[in-house]
Amino acid sequence: MKNLFTLLIISSLILFLAGCGSSRTVQRTSSDTTVDLSGKWNDTDSRLTAKKMVDGLLDSRWILNFNKENERKPVVIIGNIKNNSSEHIQTKIFSKDIERELINSGEVKFVASSEERDEIRDERAEQQQYSSMETAKRLANETGADFMLKGVISTQNDSFDGQAVKFYQVDLEMIHLETNEKVWIDSKKIKKLVDQAGYKF
């Protein structure tokens, strides 16, 4: 710095510039493009984890055993996927990703979850009063699920020297609704390394 006058001019410029905002641009991307802005749990993590876990679920022997014993596809209901992490994870999106993968596999049948059921039951009840006899759906004719899929998402974070590690663990288990028997259990881990720019003085 040559002299204080230069310093003053810089100060004045900074004072003006401090009030200036930056413009925002929006770029549309495909929904399956991986965009990881903060290292937090995102749609890609949800989608990929669901796919990998469902692949494992379908490869395991419990479906074969069930088919052999019952000569039909197992009926599954999604239970609670608990968020035990330090982030507000939309576990419903993850549940839907799992549901989609399982239904599309054609290996299992799915019934509506407890949250979805209420609305459907209301509608069915109304049909008894307002719909024609031919089209009204019967009461007490729901398909009972054989298994419930439950899970937990947890996190463990660490940071050192400008780098943060975000460690996610997703645990899923399939439980037989009549016997409480756990027929399948799996765990998927995601580790993300996030670079943080260093502190500048």
């Binding site: 968020n83 035990n84 330090s86 996190t155 974070n157 940071s159 020297d161 260093g198 502190y199 500048k200």
Partner: peptide
């Protein structure tokens, strides 16, 4: 979730100050 986040922040603050002192 918020309480877990709070617990994490203790570690993050410690890291922040170590970096700041080094700087």
């Amino acid at each position: 979730v918020e309480i877990r986040r709070l617990t994490e922040k203790f570690v993050e603050l410690e890291q922040k100050y170590q970096q700041e002192y080094r700087s």
